[in-house]
């Protein structure tokens, strides 16, 4: 798989035009409803669950609540970026290994992916991709992109995470084989993804808030966010500033 898509487009987040409350409510409603339903099934005397079904319900309850906690934490940070311009200025960055952070994020998301019957693959490369980034925020970016890919991938799908060096930056890409991004939609996204949450027609049930947050976080580290179109599925990527510090060693 090539790192650069046929029609890659960068998008630039701006802190305007977002109805954050509506988008956040929409994003939180689906997991809350699921938690309700899983709990109902565990408590309803008319429903008889086998031990394995009971374990599955409990696993999904835990995974869904963990996902909600992540989302709320990211929304909190996103809100701080929106309202506190000084936060971005004072944002601490350091040389960070993209592969190391991606590996940790994938390890964390493996139980969620497995429960969705999805496989996560990290394509490690020989050269060490070191970027100037905030480790926690970069971790949030990877988690968000992979979470998005897991939820919208085809059944028994594979999510590929890869990075490769470009001249001044390192590109971290997450590819899935779910509903693709059509040409018209790609152009629409180029104009507005990152400016405000943008639902994708082939990916129901999402307001696009997670992708908006990715764009916002990438920009806070001097990077950018984009969407690519290559064959089946969709590729979302962030370009981060390359650190030359370790490459001199």
């Amino acid at each position: 798989m090539k790192g650069k898509g046929v029609l890659d487009q960068h998008v630039h987040p701006q802190a305007q035009g977002i109805d954050a409350v509506v988008a956040a409510a929409h994003e939180l409603k689906a997991p809350l409803v699921l938690i309700n339903h899983l709990t109902d099934a565990l408590n309803d005397p008319a429903i008889s669950l086998s031990p394995s079904e009971r374990q599955q319900h409990l696993r999904r309850l835990r995974l869904t609540s963990e996902r909600m906690v992540r989302l709320v934490q990211q929304l909190t940070l996103s809100y701080r970026f929106e309202t506190d311009a000084q936060l971005t200025m004072a944002f601490p960055t350091e040389p960070v290994s993209v592969n190391e952070v991606a590996s940790m994020a994938l390890h964390e998301l493996t139980p969620y992916a497995t429960e969705h019957d999805q496989t996560l693959r990290l394509h490690e490369v020989r050269c060490h991709h070191v970027v100037l980034a905030n480790r926690d925020v970069l971790h949030d970016i990877v988690v968000n992109l992979v979470d998005n890919a897991i939820r919208h991938n085809s059944a028994k799908g594979v999510v590929d995470v890869m990075s490769h060096c470009q001249q001044q930056h390192v590109r971290l890409s997450v590819h899935d084989n779910g509903a693709g991004v059509g040409l018209a939609e790609l152009h629409r996204l180029r104009r507005s993804l990152g400016v405000e949450p943008q639902p994708l027609s082939g990916r129901a049930g999402t307001s696009g808030l997670g992708l908006y947050i990715v764009g916002q976080f990438a920009q806070a580290m001097g990077g950018s966010f984009g969407v690519g179109r290559q064959g089946v599925g969709a590729t979302f990527f962030v370009d981060l500033i390359k650190s030359w510090q370790l490459s001199l060693l």
Binding site: A41, I47, A155
Partner: peptide, 25 residues
């Protein structure tokens, strides 16, 4: 129902009520 976990929930509820349920996404 496009959410697979949600779909499995509803299918379980209805199957246990004796219905023949087919799920698509």
């Amino acid at each position: 129902e496009d959410d697979r976990w949600q779909a499995e929930c509803y299918a379980l509820w209805l199957t246990q009520a004796g219905h023949d349920v087919q799920v698509v996404h």
